[in-house]
């Protein structure tokens, strides 16, 4: 079903990372950075939108980070990381020229290659825009193959809007609609204030022929999926990206088990008809 087959490392130890050099670091938000990495071995890196890598910081540890760059670029990879723990903070403290270990890409991608002809609705919350960005790039690169394209993005405050310049550029395009809302208005914000589900209620997609890609905190994804469902979108056309503890990303460590799934292999992207029954069980 996918254009690019995942890199399966049979016969080679999947626990051993490849070395990548940090080429560029961009500060996105007060605690969030985007890093461009290039492989030391010079070999191409291929991935599909929605996949993630395990990034290793020397002596500190490893952390799963979704890929936030363009899947058409194979000379390097971009990751956007928020400092939420020891490893992500150490990662964000690295400088250009430093080396990180990379294992991946892992996981089931957004189904962008399978939904030609449909409207595409991106629903992002907070830094959840980062894992969606490769899918947005994909859709825009194949713009003629899709119907209406809409991005509904909810952030905490105007200062927390990720990829602000790019979001502005997307807003300026005539072939897509971009709605941004914040939980709390600050400063000179003249945009929307409220939750992302309110944006969904505004519609802008053909409910019978649309796919939604949803990424953000789990509770936000549930509300968003419910709002999309209320607008008439079938659950199998709604896709969410799950987050669970991961130590190995290849189904060896058991940490990300979720019902009958390993989120690392069977996800992180799940259609909502599969995710909803599991999300409804407390602490599953």
């Amino acid at each position: 079903m996918n254009v690019l087959a995942p890199n399966r490392t049979v016969g080679q130890d999947p626990m051993v990372p490849r070395s990548f050099v940090i080429e560029r670091v961009r500060k996105e938000l007060s605690d969030t950075y985007t890093m461009d990495l290039v492989p030391r071995d010079g070999l191409p890196f291929r991935f599909e939108p929605g996949q993630f890598n395990m990034l290793y910081v020397f002596g500190v540890g490893e952390v799963p980070i979704s890929i936030s760059g363009d899947s058409k670029v194979t000379a390097g990879i971009s990751h956007t990381t928020r400092s939420v723990g020891k490893v992500s903070a150490a990662l964000n403290a690295l400088q250009p020229g430093d080396v990180v270990g990379v294992r991946g890409p892992y996981g089931a991608p957004w189904p962008v290659a399978d939904v030609h002809g449909m409207d595409v609705v991106f629903v992002a919350g907070g830094v959840g825009l980062a894992p969606l960005r490769p899918a947005i790039y994909w859709v825009l690169a194949h713009r003629a193959e899709f119907g209406n394209v809409a991005i509904f993005y909810g952030a905490r405050t105007p200062e927390d809007i990720l990829f602000r310049r790019e979001v502005q550029q997307w807003r300026g395009r005539f072939d897509m609609t971009v709605h941004v809302t914040v939980d709390r208005a600050t400063g000179a914000w003249s945009g929307k204030v409220g939750v992302v589900t309110q944006l969904i209620k505004g519609g802008g997609f053909d409910r019978h022929n649309a796919v939604a890609l949803v990424c953000g905190p789990e509770v936000m994804m549930r509300y968003a999926a419910e709002a999309l469902g209320e607008r008439g979108m079938p659950k199998q056309n709604i896709h969410v990206s799950m987050e669970r503890n991961m130590k190995c990303a290849v189904g060896f460590c058991g940490h990300c088990q979720w019902g009958a799934n390993f989120v690392c292999k069977d996800g992180p992207v799940f259609s909502y008809d599969r995710a909803e029954p599991l999300l409804s069980i407390w602490e599953l």
């Binding site: 605690d31 928020r82 939420v84 919350g125 907070g126 830094v127 909810g154 952030a155 905490r156 927390d160 939980d183 709390r184 409220g194 939750v195 589900t197 309110q198 953000g216 905190p217 509770v219 936000m220 509300y223």
Partner: peptide
């Protein structure tokens, strides 16, 4: 509902 979700501060750390 919206107020509750905003109160949860889902995007905050």
């Amino acid at each position: 509902h919206a107020t509750t979700v905003q109160l949860l501060d889902l995007y905050g750390l």
